[in-house]
Design a protein around this nucleic acid. Structure first.
Lengths: 195, 195, 195, 195
DNA sequence: TATGAATGAGATTTCATTCAT
DNA sequence: AATGAATGAAATCTCATTCAT
């Protein structure tokens, strides 16, 4: 059994994902949650804070999944590629409420509030996770010599990009995600491993 | 001398870029354009149509610039890389009103109207331009054997991603754009050219 | 003590009657009701729904009054004439807010919404009431042989017409209503009763 | 060939009839007339005056038709009944633009302007025409002893009512107009003629 | 904690009318 | 006479947030 507070957050995650920030109203949320309108501000303060709470909730879960994927790897290269696969899988899991995070994330084109800082900081943990895998791979020789910071951002950009192509645009070809993984793989793999 | 209609479009491009769709109001636009409030609907019908007009105006200019860049190349690989460079340069040109296009483009996370179709179609021309360069490169041997459609989308995703990282987030390292070009370059260059 | 919702309806009935639909604004209504502007849409959805609610409220009361008048009669002819008298009396009762109903009724020349159907259906009950009296009168012999459906509509038209003449135009002679009743009476009374 | 001024009046009559006063805009009228927006105020001053002009134009034609019908009669009773028939025929003539007059007439429930006086006065000529027939009929014995002024208003009310029932509501039975004429006939015919 | 009525500022949109050309 | 861009007041409606219960 869910508490009313949880029901609100659930409804918020769904609706912010489905409708976007502006089109999601307190009325819609409270109705979907089957809960009184006033509880929203009571529990979450205001709309932006609720939005952030919804985004962070998904992000938190996302981080667990990513961490898991990295932990399952036996070397850095595998860890990095697991990370990428987990990222993309999560983004099309119908139960993950991914779209809230898309809209709330630092990569969103929505104008958001002061609390953006908190999201910036938390989302950074995603980058750190990938960075760890790259260092690990360089150490264990499974990844070739690269500029780590830059590569993290390039890989993240690639993931952000293919994800947006798939979940927001009509342009995604059938195996876009698979190709993206191959792309990443080639970028990391040492030259001698090419052959 | 600008007509009032042009002044409106100019103000709209600036403001939709600076403030986003929701935060940009008729009042702001008409004030910045120095024009009566009602002229907005008189000339553009409604807010969404104006938004689209603003986005398409930037997109049109963008296409000219990209075409130019491709035309200057002496082979397909160079054409594709010129395309990428022009894309990224345009995105940080202070006079290009790039942000409107970011927010109006198919890669935006904003919920937009039925006229989205028009934007989808027009933006597709960007993809076609890149696709042409890839075919050309494969023909002239400057690009290695690749899946063209997929690669177009991967490269576009990469550009979308690094661009968003740079113009929207605080994560961009100093030479992100340069690295992205190198990344693209490596993906296209035939293996023997690696050495 | 009235709730604010009731105060709104009261003000709406008065103002729609006094000023007509178009000239009645949210501002006027909320000010007369002594209530915040937004409460109008909160409780009634939009202007048209409030108009309908106002019209139906008067219609409901109207139906009770008409039913009463019919119930007081000892035969069909008397019932029908009581009906007509009650109709016309109601229309000049200063407390009945008759004009809202005039403007909201199916006989109005205003262009109204989809919810017109509801008004059509409810107003039909008025006709049914008169129809019952006619059947009753034919059975008990107090009304001569007539085409019932047609007569209902003729009588209703007469009532609608004399009412509009009196409440909307400057043409009404002093005893118009009385004459109309006589007119109806003659139309229903059996020929032998003429003498 | 129509002048632009005439084209405007034609479009206005059609649109005020189809859409009502409030829903008819200068834009709609000028577009339907295929004429510049500014010509409306240039030729007709303002919206109300145009409305009145449209209504009066139909009324004028209406009066000619009614006069004609009366002139064709050989006695007062026939004249009065011809009048009624012509009234009802005109109201369902698809070329008569009757609905403008319905909405502009003194029997309309729209709130209209100061120029209402002009319409009141002109519409009075309709009543006078009927009144003439009644006096004529009393003189020539074709109509029984009645209160003329009152009867004029009763008959007009009946016509207004059945007309509204037919053109505005869904309640009209098939032969309503024919029944209304019979009704009027019975009201005027001397008693001895009953048998 | 829970409810939903109440508020009112603010947004979009409409449109008669004016006016320069 | 003819055009249609330009104006801006006013209307409807939205909605986050407050608050009494």
């Amino acid at each position: 059994m869910m508490t009313k507070k949880e029901a609100l957050l659930k409804a918020a995650k769904e609706l912010f994902g489905e409708c976007g920030y502006a089109e999601t109203t307190f009325k819609k949320i409270s109705e979907r949650a089957g809960v009184a309108l006033g509880l929203l501000t009571h529990h979450y303060g205001n709309k932006e804070k609720l939005f952030l709470a919804a985004g962070l909730d998904v992000l938190e879960h996302f981080l667990v999944v990513l961490q898991d994927a990295c932990d399952r790897a036996s070397n850095g290269r595998e860890g990095a590629l697991n990370f990428c696969r987990a990222y993309l899988d999560f983004s099309i899991d119908p139960d993950s409420n991914w779209l809230v995070l898309v809209r709330c994330s630092p990569y969103s084109d929505m104008k958001t509030s002061a609390d953006r800082e908190l999201m910036f900081k938390k989302f950074n943990e995603v980058h750190q996770l990938l960075e760890q895998q790259l260092w690990r791979g360089i150490e264990d020789g499974s990844i070739r010599e690269i500029l780590v910071k830059e590569t993290v951002q390039i890989l993240m950009s690639l993931l952000v990009g293919v994800n947006r192509t798939r979940v927001l645009t009509p342009y995604a070809p059938p195996h876009l995600y698979r190709e993206a993984i191959d792309f990443a793989s080639r970028a990391l793999t040492p030259c001698n491993a090419c052959e």
